[in-house]
Design a protein around this nucleic acid. Structure first.
Lengths: 412, 412
DNA sequence: CGAAGGAATGTTAGCGCTCACGATCCAGGT
DNA sequence: ACCTGGATCGTGAGCGCTAACATTCCTTCG
C-alpha cells in the first residue's frame, strides 16, 4: 500500500514492525508450522501494512523451493506451441509457479553451454516444447545433466514413444493419422497424399502405415513449411493433378493453404478433393467449408507436462498424464471421391465440379442444416452418448461420415 | 562440459582454477574493463573447462544489471497478444534479456499486491500487454510504483494517446478504422456496422467518427467475444438483415466468424455483404475469399515496447518507437453493395446472389488472375511503387479498390 | 631517484532469504 | 523439586554474486 520511491521492504523490516525475528516472518510467509496463531496474525498484519513482497531471487539463492519453470521453445505463435504454452501456464499459475520463456532460433546451432545458459541457474526445472530439431537437441542436452528437472512435450524428433519415457508428454498422433488415412481410403480414395510440416512427424509414420496396410504405395511426401503461405505454394502443383483426390495435412494451417490452392485451381471440396488437417484450431469449425481435422489437446499436453515436472521435483505421488489418442472430427472438407472422374489434364473442370458439388456453396439456401455451434469446453455430448471415437460434440458442425447429405440441391 | 550430479560450479571454483580472485572472474564474466588480456584468457579457459554459468538469482540479488523483463498479459494465444509477445521476445533475446511471463485471469479481481507479487522483485522491469480491463488495471498499479521500469502496449483501456505518453507503444488503429469505414461508405454502402471485440477499442471510435463525418447515424455496436465462435453467434442476427451490407470487425477472427455466418445465411461476399477485419493474420490472405483487413504490426509494437523499456532502464539515448499508422489491405471480401437490392425479408436470395456474385466462387476457372503469393517480409512493392496508403504488397492477392474485376464470368 | 598516478588485482561487506541449530518457555511425569 | 520434551521463537552462517574500497605493482615525470 505505502510504496514510495525508497528501499524496498525486506523481511527484517517486517520483523521489526511485528516485534519478532526475521526467521519467524520467513516461517509465516512460507506457511511453515510452529508459529503461534497470535504471532502469525501480528506478522501478517505487519506484512500488509508495509506491503512486503518476498524477493524471488533471494529465495531461490538461499535454497528455497524453486517455484519457477523455464519453457524452451522455438516459435510461440504457432498454434500447437501457443496452446501447449497455455496449458503449462494454466497449471503453473494454479501451483504458484513462475514461468520463464526462452525462445530458441530454429536456424541457430547452439552449444550445450548455450542451452544450459538459458536456465536461471544450474538444475533449474525446465519444459521443452520439442517440435523441431533445435528444441529436440536442447532437450537432449538438458537430459544429460538436468534429467531430474526436465520434461519435454511433442518430441517426434526425440525418437521415443510415450509409454517408454517418464519425461515426455505427447499425443498419439501416429495412430490418429493412420485412422484418418484409413477413413479416406475406406471412402474410396485410391490413395492419400501427405503434406508434411517440417518435423519428423509421427503423423507421417501413421499415414504411411495405413497406406501400407491397405496395400497402397505411398506417394512422395510433399514438404511444406509451417505457414499457410508455404502450404499454398507447396500444394499448387499437387492440387493441379486431378488424380490427387485426398490430402492429409500436417496441421490446420497447411490444410487452409491447400484449400485455398484448391479453390484457385478450381477444385471443389469435398466433391473433387478431400482435405484433412491436424489441430482443430478454433477456426476449423467455422471455415467455409468447415474443416475435417484431428482434435489435438495441446493444452492438456501442457498441463500434463507441468504436472509431470512437479512430480519429479517434489517426489510425491502426482497423477501421471495419460497418453490419450486424439480424435478425428469429420466435418465438410472430406468425403468420397467424385464418382464422375475427370479425364486427366482436362482443361476446365468448372462445369463438372459445379454441377456435382454438394454442399459448401456460399449463397446457398438459408435453410441449411441446423447448426449448433457450441465450441465451449464441455467435454462430452449428452445426447449422442456413444464414445465411438470418430467424432466429438465440441465442434459445431455435426459429423458426416459417408454419404454427404446435400444441404441445398444443385439448382432451384 | 563436465557436468556431474554434484554441486554446481561457482565463481570461486573458477577463481581457484584460474589462480585469481573471484572478483576478477566476475569482471571477466561481465566484460568489465581493467583486466589484463592474459588474465582474461586464463579465466575464460577455466570457465570453459569447468562449464561455469553465472547464477541469475545471485546476480540479481547482488544488484547487478537486471537483464530480465516480466510480461503481463491475459491470453497468450490471441493473435495480437502472441505477436506482440514475439516482438518482445525477439528484441529481448537480441539484448540478452530473459523473459518471464505472467498470465492474468481476465475474470479475476486483483489487488495491487497481487499484481506487484507477479514481479520477481521490487522494481523489476515489466511490459504489460494491455488489451482488456484486467491488464489495463495492472498497468495502472505498476505505473504508480514502478513507473521507471514499466511499459505498456495496446492500452485502449488506458485512455492515453501515444504521443502523450512515454510508456505506451500502440498502433493508430483509430485512424485506420476510420479510413476503412470511409472506404466502405465511399463505395456506396449506406452504413457500416461494427462487430466489437471486448475492449473499449479505439477502433470503435474511429468507426464512429467516420460515420459521423459522413453524416450517417451509427448503428448499434454489436458486441462479441474474442473467439470465432462468439463472433459467429453474434453475427447470425446481423447477417440475416439484408439492410446490413457492410460489417467492420474488431479483428480477423471475428471477420471469419461473420463470413461463416454470412455463408450459412446465404449471403454472398462481397456482392451481398462486405466484411473487413483487423490484424492481417497469416490466414487472411489465403482465406476463401481473401479477407480485406488492416495490417497491424504487433510484432513491431512488441519490439518497440522492449526498446522503450530498455531506454528507461539504461537511461541512454535509444530510438523511440514511432506511432505508425496501419494500412488497409483491400482484398476480396469488400466491394460496392449490390446494385440490385433485395426486398427486405425476401425468403431465398440464392438465385440473385449466385447470378451476380463476381469472384469468390470455388470451382471457378483455373485461369484465375495471376497470383503472386509472397507473404514474406519484403516491405515494399517494386513495381507499384506509389506509397498511396491503401494497399501493401506483402499480401498475396492484388489490391482491388473499386470496380471488382470479375475473374470468371458467371457462366461459361 | 623519489613521489605521484594509473592499471591490475584482491578484500570486505552486503543483497534478502532459508537452513540448521540453539535458546527459551511451560506443561506433564516421577 | 527435578527432569523431559514439545511448542515456539531467535541466532548465525551462507547461497553466488557485485559494489566499493583497499592493495600491489609498475610506469612516468619532476
Amino acid at each position: 500500500m505505502s510504496a514510495a520511491e525508497s528501499k524496498p521492504v525486506s523481511i527484517f523490516d517486517v520483523a521489526k514492525r511485528a516485534g519478532v525475528s526475521h526467521q519467524t516472518v520467513s516461517r509465516v510467509v512460507n506457511d511453515a508450522a510452529g508459529v503461534a496463531d497470535s504471532t502469525r496474525a501480528k506478522v501478517k498484519a505487519a506484512i500488509g501494512e508495509l506491503g512486503y513482497r518476498p524477493n524471488r531471487s533471494a529465495r531461490a539463492l538461499a535454497g528455497g523451493a524453486v517455484r519457477s519453470v523455464t519453457v524452451l521453445t522455438t516459435d510461440t505463435s504457432l498454434y500447437g506451441t501457443a496452446e501447449t504454452l497455455r496449458g503449462i501456464e494454466d497449471a503453473a499459475r494454479a501451483a504458484g509457479f513462475t514461468i520463464l520463456i526462452s525462445v530458441l532460433d530454429p536456424d541457430e546451432a547452439y552449444t550445450e553451454t548455450d542451452i544450459l545458459a538459458r536456465l536461471p541457474h544450474d538444475g533449474a526445472p525446465a519444459i521443452v516444447i520439442a517440435h523441431d530439431e533445435t528444441t529436440a537437441r536442447a532437450m537432449q542436452t538438458l537430459q544429460k545433466t538436468q534429467a531430474h528437472a526436465t520434461v519435454a512435450t511433442g518430441g517426434e524428433h526425440l525418437g521415443v514413444e510415450q509409454p517408454a519415457a517418464d519425461w515426455l508428454v505427447s499425443l498419439d498422433d501416429r495412430t490418429v493419422a493412420a485412422r484418418a488415412t484409413k477413413y479416406l481410403l475406406d471412402m474410396g480414395h485410391a490413395t492419400v497424399h501427405y503434406l508434411a510440416i517440417p518435423s519428423k512427424a509421427s503423423r507421417r509414420t501413421g499415414w504411411a502405415a495405413a497406406l501400407a496396410e491397405a496395400g497402397v504405395e505411398a506417394p512422395p511426401v510433399v514438404p511444406s513449411g509451417w505457414s499457410v503461405a508455404s502450404a499454398y505454394e507447396a500444394a499448387t502443383e499437387l492440387v493441379a493433378d486431378p488424380d490427387v483426390t485426398a490430402v492429409l495435412c500436417g496441421n490446420d494451417d497447411l490444410a487452409f493453404g491447400v484449400l485455398y490452392a484448391a479453390h484457385r485451381a478450381g477444385r471443389s471440396v469435398p466433391g473433387d478433393l478431400s482435405v484433412i488437417g491436424f489441430d482443430d484450431c478454433p477456426l476449423a469449425a467455422y471455415h467455409v467449408p468447415p474443416l475435417t481435422t484431428v482434435d489435438l489437446d495441446f493444452r492438456g499436453v501442457g498441463r500434463g507436462a507441468f504436472e509431470l515436472l512437479r512430480g519429479k521435483l517434489e517426489g510425491g505421488e502426482r497423477p501421471r498424464p495419460v497418453w490419450r489418442s486424439p480424435e478425428l472430427i469429420v466435418r465438410e472438407t472430406s468425403g468420397p471421391p467424385e464418382r464422375r472422374r475427370l479425364p486427366k489434364g482436362f482443361p476446365c473442370i468448372h462445369s463438372f465440379a459445379a454441377a456435382s458439388r454438394p454442399r459448401p456453396r456460399p449463397g446457398c439456401s438459408p435453410a441449411s442444416p441446423p447448426h449448433p455451434p457450441r465450441p465451449g469446453t464441455s467435454p462430452s455430448c449428452p445426447s449422442t452418448s456413444d464414445g465411438s471415437g470418430a467424432s466429438r460434440s465440441t465442434a459445431p458442425s455435426a459429423r458426416s461420415t459417408a454419404s454427404p447429405t446435400p444441404a441445398c440441391p444443385a439448382t432451384t
